[in-house]
Computed example of a mutant assay.
Amino acid sequence: MALVARAFGARGVFIDGYDESLVNKVRKTVEYWGGSYFEVRLVSDPKGLVRQWRENGGKVIHLTMYGINLPEVENRIREIDNLLIVVGSEKVEGWYYTNADFNVAVSNQPHSEVAALAILLDRLYKGDELNIVFRDAKIRIIPQERGKKVIRTDEQ
């Protein structure tokens, strides 16, 4: 989830619980592949984070297959500057449905939360996130039709 968020233009992720290993893996990815603006933080009180986000004027999107279909709300949410996207992995407490500004469905069918996040970010950025160049990357892939070409920018 964190890697998709980074690659698709999110500014960071908050992860519920304590998983320092995951944080270190994501930070290592950022170090080599770029995106130094991308922040990863562990939170012990995700409900408190949602409350604080809203108190500070931000809006909360909860991705759920039970929500309003994305095409119906994408133009409205695209205009919001300060978004927190909540993505659950198991059964999500009803509290999040009630306290989100938008409950958004990418599909009303069971599917991957990672795919839902990627599709939401793609719609929000109108595909521009696919052109992100991480200028601070130490490793870059040079796109080509066949073969693999990887350069190390920290060796030049």
Score class of each variant (00 low, 15 high):
residue 39 E to A: 03
residue 127 G to L: 11
residue 37 Y to D: 00
residue 11 R to A: 03
residue 59 K to T: 03
residue 81 D to Q: 04
residue 36 S to F: 00
residue 71 P to H: 09
residue 129 E to G: 10
residue 52 Q to I: 15
residue 19 D to I: 02
residue 26 V to T: 09
residue 143 P to C: 04
residue 20 E to T: 03
residue 73 V to N: 03
residue 132 I to E: 01
residue 106 V to D: 06
residue 12 G to T: 09
residue 119 I to C: 13
residue 72 E to W: 10
residue 133 V to C: 01
residue 81 D to G: 08
residue 104 V to Y: 03
residue 99 N to W: 15
residue 148 K to E: 00
residue 125 Y to V: 11
residue 62 H to A: 01
residue 140 R to N: 07
residue 2 A to H: 12
residue 120 L to E: 05
residue 15 I to V: 14
residue 140 R to I: 11
residue 113 E to V: 13
residue 14 F to Y: 15
residue 13 V to Q: 09
residue 62 H to R: 06
residue 1 M to W: 10
residue 16 D to T: 14
residue 8 F to L: 05
residue 89 S to L: 15
residue 116 A to L: 15
residue 51 R to I: 13
residue 92 V to E: 10
residue 119 I to R: 13
residue 89 S to G: 15
residue 133 V to A: 01
residue 81 D to R: 07
residue 53 W to D: 10
residue 122 D to N: 05
residue 81 D to H: 09
residue 56 N to L: 06
residue 128 D to K: 14
residue 129 E to F: 13
residue 90 E to Q: 15
residue 92 V to L: 10
residue 109 Q to C: 04
residue 153 T to A: 07
residue 21 S to M: 09
residue 49 L to E: 11
residue 98 T to Q: 14
residue 62 H to I: 04
residue 130 L to W: 02
residue 119 I to D: 12
residue 6 R to M: 12
residue 19 D to P: 02
residue 72 E to A: 13
residue 113 E to G: 13
residue 55 E to A: 10
residue 69 N to L: 09
residue 77 I to D: 04
residue 151 I to R: 04
residue 96 Y to P: 12
residue 82 N to E: 03
residue 151 I to H: 05
residue 155 E to S: 06
residue 81 D to F: 06
residue 20 E to C: 00
residue 103 N to A: 13
residue 79 E to C: 10
residue 72 E to R: 13
residue 100 A to P: 13
residue 75 N to S: 01
residue 57 G to Y: 07
residue 11 R to K: 05
residue 103 N to C: 13
residue 71 P to E: 07
residue 111 H to C: 14
residue 112 S to T: 14
residue 44 S to M: 02
residue 94 G to L: 04
residue 100 A to F: 12
residue 113 E to S: 14
residue 128 D to W: 09
residue 78 R to K: 07
residue 35 G to H: 09
residue 21 S to A: 11
residue 126 K to T: 11
residue 84 L to N: 06
residue 151 I to D: 02
residue 58 G to P: 05
residue 56 N to Y: 04
residue 43 V to R: 01
residue 111 H to L: 15
residue 48 G to M: 06
residue 54 R to A: 15
residue 43 V to W: 01
residue 155 E to D: 06
residue 95 W to P: 06
residue 129 E to P: 11
residue 49 L to Y: 11
residue 118 A to S: 09
residue 116 A to T: 15
residue 66 Y to C: 00
residue 18 Y to N: 06
residue 65 M to V: 00
